[in-house]
């Protein structure tokens, strides 16, 4: 078994209802939920693999695909939408060359859409990791994203 998983399971073992916490830790450690790792988790916890897959596909916090180092959340809530959020999303999507929900080949960025981050006065809003950017435009986003590139 993979050492990292072994450790994660050890941390949670014996406590009922640990499956979600285990999946969260796996996601944190691997960046996503790899199939082989979930197979090991299922075995160790005695939970059917189908159930883990069910949970992993139900919660949007879990990803079954590798994710980028940075996650871009383009807001499409009502306020952002009215102020051109969709256009900003399209611009970002073209800049990094992936559709919402996908990750760039160099594993730098994952593009996601969200419905309101809770700061509509700054619309249109884009969040990169935990940093919030307001009054965004396609041009501004180019500069912002450059700061995250290595």
């Amino acid at each position: 078994m993979d050492e990292k998983v072994e450790k994660i399971i050890e941390q949670h073992q014996g406590k009922p209802g640990t499956v979600i916490s285990v999946l969260e830790s796996v996601q944190e450690n691997y960046g996503y939920l790899p199939q082989q790792i979930l197979e090991q988790v299922a075995q160790a916890l005695g939970v059917p693999l189908a159930q883990l897959f069910s949970m992993a596909t139900f919660y949007s916090a879990f990803s079954l695909k590798p994710r980028g180092k940075h996650t871009i959340y383009a807001c499409l809530g009502t306020a952002c939408h009215v102020r051109g959020g969709a256009r900003v999303l399209k611009g970002v999507s073209q800049q990094i060359g992936v559709k919402p929900g996908d990750t760039t080949d160099d594993r730098q960025f994952t593009l996601e859409t969200v419905r309101c981050i809770g700061c509509c006065s700054l619309a249109p809003v884009v969040k990169v990791n935990e940093d919030v950017y307001g009054y965004t435009t396609t041009d501004k986003m180019r500069g912002i994203l450059d700061n995250y590139k290595e």
Binding site: L49, A50, S54, T57, F58
Partner: peptide, 10 residues
Amino acid sequence: GVGAINYASR
């Protein structure tokens, strides 16, 4: 007690 299938997605 097999659990080969389950719901997926949402």
